[in-house]
Structures are given as C-alpha cells and as structure tokens.
Simulated scan of single mutants.
Amino acid sequence: MDIDGRTRVIVHLAYPSAHLQTPALFNARCRERRINAVLVPWEVAPADLATTWAALRNASSIAGAIVTIPHKETAAAHCDALEGVAAELTVANVVRRDADGRLTGRLYDGLGFVAGLRQHGYDPRGRRTLLLGAGGASTALAQALIEAGVAELVIANRNAARAEALVGRLRELNPSARIATGPADATGFDLIVNGTSVGLDGDPASPVDIATIARGSMVADIVMKPAMTPLLIGAQARGAQIHQGVHMVAAQIDLFIDFLIGDAAAATETQRPALRLA
C-alpha cells in the first residue's frame, strides 16, 4: 500500500522504541486488508508525553495511537473517554482520535494475551498463576487471566506497595477471585507470566529465579525482542513450555485496526481476532 495524502497515520508511543515489532505486523495486515494506513514508531520520553498528546489532538492525519511501555497508565489519564476494561483499570494501549480531536482509549493487551495462549493450545482456566509485574501491561493481563478462570493469581513486583495496590483494585472488580501478592518464586505454579520489560533487548536478567520453574509448567513472556528472552531460554532448559511475546501482539492487530480506522463497534473486547501467527 502506497502512502499518499489520504493515508491514516497511527503513532506507536514508546520509550525506548528500538525494540518495537508491532509496526511491521500492523502495516503488513493493513496491506493484506487493503487499508490505507501506516503505523510509525514515536519514541517519547515520559516527561514529554503531555506535549506529544497535544500534537495527536491537532493533527488531522492522525487516526490514533498504540501505546506501550512506559506510557499505558499515563496515556489513559490523558484520554477524553475510556471504554470497557480500560475504564475499570485506568490503563489504555490503544487510543482513537476522532475528527474533532476527541481521544478514546481501550485496552486489548489482556484479551490478546489470553487469545494468544488459547490459539497455541494452552487454556489458563484452572491454573495457579504467577504474574511478574504490576505496571500497565501486567494490570491488563491480571484482569484477563482472572476472567479466563485461573485458579489463583499471585502478583510479584519489586515495588511491593504497587503490587498491593493492584491486588486491591482487582479484588474490588473480582470479589470471588483468589488474588494475592507474593515473591518472584515460580515454585508450585502452573503458569508463570512476565508482564515487565525485564529481558528486553539485551537485558540479561530474568524477572524470576529460573531454578524455581518446574518441568511441564508454562512460561510466557510479553517481551518481543529478543523473541527468546533469558527467561524463555532458561525455562525451556528446565523442561517448561514457553510462549513468546509476539503472540500477544499478533492477536490484537485486527482489533487495533478495526477500532482505529475500521468498524469501532466491531472491535469489541470479546471478538476473536482473525490474525494468526504460525
């Protein structure tokens, strides 16, 4: 698809941005669907997000933004409206700009993550689950995993107060669910999920002690670059199943497109995405 004067532009807000792979997936899907739109990375420091937001409102060619680390919670606060689980959690990973400059946010990370797991043959229902992190991405994953029926959700975060705050919000939304904070120790867990940026783009660290990962458990990482993070490499060596970060994003691409430049009403939080990634 050629870029011309009618091309709808979506910006991918991140800091840093060198690791982003969503633009390649998004733009390829737009070509497949013959949609005149393009997603471009914007590396924006947290201190500059507010001024960048003003540019989004005032540029008529902008259809909206996809939002990633570290902006998901801050972006939600800048929106004029939040829909669905984004309103419940005050986190957004996609923002649509309407013709009048009004900005509406939604959150598809959790839906995409659970859909990606299921598309690759793993159902989180009934699993004892350890979630590493309590930021914007982890908040979305936590709610989605609870809605998917995990038996128990334990959240581990370096900032314990932030983990406790997230657990409190989740308990309000899900009073019957088993939710707690705990250490970054995978002992006894069926599903271990990294919702942090640990392991990103050359970082040699793991968010959990790999020696605590049991053979046969499932270890999922939302980090996309590298595809095989230190956590996934270590988990595979331990005999665990692994699930790569690209699957969460791939399961959201059609939802992003429909919400930003297609049929927003069709991009519901229960819609199964059409895109599949081998």
Rank of each mutant, 00 (worst) to 15 (best):
L166D: 01
N194H: 05
R33A: 11
L20P: 03
H12M: 15
C30G: 05
H12N: 14
G195L: 00
S206E: 12
V94Y: 00
C79M: 09
R125W: 04
A235W: 06
M248K: 00
T268I: 01
A18D: 12
F26E: 01
S217Q: 00
A87M: 07
Y122N: 08
G84W: 06
D123P: 00
R29C: 04
N159P: 07
P16E: 01
G136K: 05
H78A: 12
P226Y: 04
L130P: 10
T22A: 13
G135H: 08
A75I: 09
H71D: 13
D203M: 01
D201T: 07
V150G: 00
A274G: 11
A50S: 15
L25F: 15
G133Y: 07
T68P: 09
A75Y: 04
A59C: 14
V219R: 03
A250C: 08
A274Y: 05
G199N: 10
M224H: 05
I261H: 00
V114R: 03
D100Y: 09
N27R: 12
A240N: 04
P226A: 07
L166K: 01
H120Q: 12
S17N: 10
G64T: 12
R171A: 14
I10E: 11
V38P: 04
L107D: 10
R162C: 04
D4E: 08
N93S: 06
I35Q: 03
D190W: 00
S60M: 07
G121D: 09
G110E: 03
R127K: 15
A180V: 06
D123A: 11
E83F: 05
A161D: 15
L231H: 11
I192R: 00
R178K: 14
L232P: 00
I69E: 04
A45S: 15
T270C: 08
D190M: 00
K225R: 14
E147P: 06
L153N: 09
